[in-house]
Design a protein around this nucleic acid. Sequence first.
DNA 1: CCTTTAGATTGATGGACGTCGATAAGTCTG
DNA 2: CAGACTTATCGACGTCCATCAATCTAAAGG
Lengths: 90, 90
Amino acid sequence: MSRSDALDMAEVFAALGDPVRLQMLSIIAASHEVCSCNLEGPLAKSQPTISHHTRVLAEAGLIVGEKRGRWTWWRSVPERLDMASRFLEP
Amino acid sequence: MSRSDALDMAEVFAALGDPVRLQMLSIIAASHEVCSCNLEGPLAKSQPTISHHTRVLAEAGLIVGEKRGRWTWWRSVPERLDMASRFLEP
DNA sequence: CCTTTAGATTGATGGACGTCGATAAGTCTG
DNA sequence: CAGACTTATCGACGTCCATCAATCTAAAGG
C-alpha cells in the first residue's frame, strides 16, 4: 500500500471518525435526498456545525450536495462507500 | 442509528483515519504476525510514535498484541474489520 | 549482577479539530 | 425593493492529537 493511497483512504476514514458525521451519513444514506435543514434537528447541533460536517463529508467524497433554490440537497456516494468497504476486506 | 453505536463505530474509523495507522494495519494484516520492531522501518517513525499508534489500533479492537519474550507480536482482528466493512454497506 | 535490547510511558509542543456566535451571500415572497 | 429564510464562511476558544526526546520496565545473555 502506497503512501498516497494511505493519505486518500485516511481522509475518508477520518471523515467517518466522528459520531456526528457518522449519524449524518447514516441519515443521508437512508433517504434519497436530505437538505441541511433536516439535519440540524436530529443531530442537535448548530447550523454552522452542520455546515462544517457536511463539508468534511463532501471533501472526502462520501456525499455530494446540489443547490436547488434556497436548499442544498445532499445524497450519499455509494461508490465511495464501497471503496472504503472493500479496503477493509480485500 | 443510536448515538452509542455512532460513538463505538466512530472510534474504529477514527483509528483508521490516520495514514500511518492505515499503513501499519495494512502491514500487520498482510502477514500473520508482525513485531513492533518491524514497523519502525517501513513507517519511518520513532519508536514512541509506533507504540502510540499500535495502542490506538488495539484500543479500537483492530489489532491484538501478544508479548512473547522481548517482542510484542501484533496481528489483525478480521472480525472487527468485517464489522466496520459491513457498516459501510448494509 | 550488569549490559543490552524491545517496548511502554511520560512530558512537552505545535498543529489540527469540534463547536458556536456573528456575519455574508444567495433565494424566495409579498 | 424589503424582509424572511437557508446555507456558507469567518473568528475565536477550548480540547484533542501526532510527534519525539527522555525515562522507565521487563526480558535475554554473559
